[in-house]
């Protein structure tokens, strides 16, 4: 029972990764959340601090087509996630995160790496390695480079159970002036 559940979780997680690669995951109306970017295209760096349980800042402005380097630092005492996606994607991802907590992969203030890398039987693992997301232990600091494409209802969020629900998310606002600029270019 548990093993099969784990497998489903692992499968679901690698699925989301695949769909990202294809760049067509559902934000609805054919919109896209964008894709992993190249370091060479980075036009801007945004610092995001994780606290227990909120981000600073709680909203960012981006432009269509912009590639942003996110430097994310966990300044809290608990594990947090930084995940770029639509509210629907976050909701779907929350079930996976719940399972990671239930299976001791995420243990409040630390990650169980062994558990994460454990082979579920067919090459699947509980690795949290989607390109649109990052999981940080307290004190850790990591980067994500992301290229935003079209204007989409997006949030960055921590999907650890309860964190998103209690408000650990931020709005990704598309700067309309910058948009116009980008279109003119």
């Amino acid at each position: 029972m548990n093993a099969s559940k784990l497998f489903v979780a692992a499968a679901a997680m690698s699925m989301t990764a695949t769909t990202f690669a294809a760049g067509s995951h559902g934000g609805g109306h054919g919109s896209s959340i964008g894709e992993p970017g190249n370091a060479g295209d980075v036009s801007r760096t945004i610092q995001v601090e994780m606290h227990d349980n909120y981000y600073e800042p709680e909203a960012i402005e981006v432009a269509r087509g912009e590639t942003v380097r996110f430097v994310i630092e966990n300044k809290g005492r608990l594990v947090h996630e930084f995940n770029i996606g639509t509210p629907e994607m976050h909701e779907a991802h929350q079930d996976e995160m719940k399972m990671m907590v239930e299976h001791g992969v995420i243990q409040g203030d630390k990650l169980n790496e062994d558990m994460m890398n454990m082979d579920m039987g067919n090459g699947q693992t509980m690795k949290h390695d989607d390109p649109n997301s990052i999981l940080l232990e307290p004190g850790q600091k990591k980067e994500i480079i992301w290229t935003f494409s079209s204007k989409t209802n997006m949030e960055f969020a921590c999907n650890i159970p309860g964190h998103y629900q209690s408000g650990m998310y931020g709005d990704v606002n598309f700067d309309s002036a910058a948009d116009t600029q980008a279109r003119a270019d």
Partner: peptide, 12 residues
Amino acid sequence: GEMDPDGMKDDS
């Protein structure tokens, strides 16, 4: 130290 708030439920 095991921080496992939701873990209780499904603990067979």
